[in-house]
Design a protein around this nucleic acid. Structure first.
Lengths: 227, 227
DNA sequence: AAAAATCTGAAGGAAATCTGAAGTGGTAGA
DNA sequence: TCTACCACTTCAGATTTCCTTCAGATTTTT
């Protein structure tokens, strides 16, 4: 999961990033609405954490802008303005949830996961593809009911592929989602090759079919083999 | 055991928390229905203690909402409205028990334990897993009938693991169930490592099998070893 | 056939986990 | 009040597991 945190308080930002990163979530930051708009237009995020009080404007107006985008990211508002009005306004304007400050970081994490489940997995905690079943809660994947012993990166990769099944995913898109955009001067995509290899190997060993095809020069596709 | 107390009377809240904490129950508080809903959506509780008269609405309507959740927590109503109607309505709406104010704290504790036994242990006072047997009443665990000398934290940990057998439990989930939610910026999980180590050691010394596997980067799982 | 992209095994470094020992706080008994 | 003990936590070092990089082999495209 990859998020964008829009927040100008340095200390809070540090805390949130440290906690979420530790939970394996890729975090990027924008300190104001101007930068935020930039990033949202350039990259895809599973969720945007939006503070309402920012140096260059009110977050609610930002929601209006987001509404007009074609691929609107999920939005979780975090704000000190703990009035019911704000909550209602925020949710009316298309936010997915509202978390009043101060909050516990564990609560933030729980909300994030809830939003992710709702949007990507239509509320379920499981993803299925033929003989492959994934339980997000336990970070467990199974083939024919037989548990797959995946590492975190392999698991994330499989989830990303399977939630975008039958779509060709470029290597850059994969790198972005699993490593964030600290992948500017990529020397190579060797690490992707590695994880793909391991994933294929483990699925095969567990008796799963080969759904993961290479699209030469572009990336990978997960889905029913065509030819 | 971890509970959520929904109550706006400060003094009563303090009393209950002090008593239950002393009994080793993790307590969290919500002063109104708004906060309560937030918490219930974010965390898992073994039981919810619900006052019916709250600043932002009636607790009975809250029960309606709970009913629609997938994982409905157990509910124990505590209320001054000692009418038969309320009791019947409350139980009809899915509450597990009803305790009229004023009550003795020891009675509250007894009801809590009863609810816990019913829901998690299907009425029994024992939990069993192959050669391991746990009696909640006297905080005793046995392996092959041989008593295990566990401390309170080790005992709670074992119960938590064994009532969630074959599920991967994240270190955060474990920390939250055994220490409450106030574990945001954990410097480390060293204390979990310790308790896990001690638990493993004591079970092994008593001749028990090694059912406790670590899931790297995530947490632990208790159950039949698979691979 | 040459060039580019992808695959593979091996190795170094980083991160998570384990372990023994020391420190802290509370409680019981002298 | 003091001391001894126990449960719990923290600390530091050892160990294990994973992530990334590198070099060479293989495949695909031109």
């Amino acid at each position: 999961m990859k998020i964008l945190l829009i927040e100008d308080n340095q200390e809070l930002t540090q805390n949130i990033i440290q906690y979420l990163s530790h939970e394996g979530i890729i975090c990027e930051v924008a300190g104001n609405l101007f930068d935020a708009q930039d990033k949202i237009l350039s990259f895809e995020y599973d969720c945007v954490l939006l503070d309402l009080m920012l140096p260059d404007g009110n977050g609610l107006s930002f929601l209006e802008i987001l509404k007009k985008l074609k691929v609107r990211p999920n939005v979780l508002i975090i704000s000190a303005k703990n009035s019911l009005d704000d909550k209602i306004n925020g949710l009316d304007l298309g936010a997915d949830d509202y978390l009043p400050k101060p909050f516990h970081l564990s609560e933030l994490l729980a909300r994030l996961k809830a939003i992710y489940r709702r949007s990507k997995l239509s509320g379920s905690d499981e993803v299925n593809f033929n003989e492959i079943a994934i339980q997000l809660q336990n970070l467990q994947a199974k083939v024919h009911g037989k548990p797959l012993d995946l590492t975190k990166k392999e698991f994330d990769l499989l989830v990303f592929l399977i939630t975008n099944k039958n779509r060709v995913l470029g290597k850059n898109a994969i790198a972005q989602h699993l490593w964030g955009d600290y992948t500017d001067n990529l020397p190579s995509f060797d690490f992707i090759y590695q994880h793909i290899k391991n994933l294929r190997k483990k699925i095969a060993e567990a008796g799963g079919n080969d759904y993961l095809t290479t699209v030469y020069g572009i990336g990978y596709k997960f889905g029913e083999p065509q030819s």
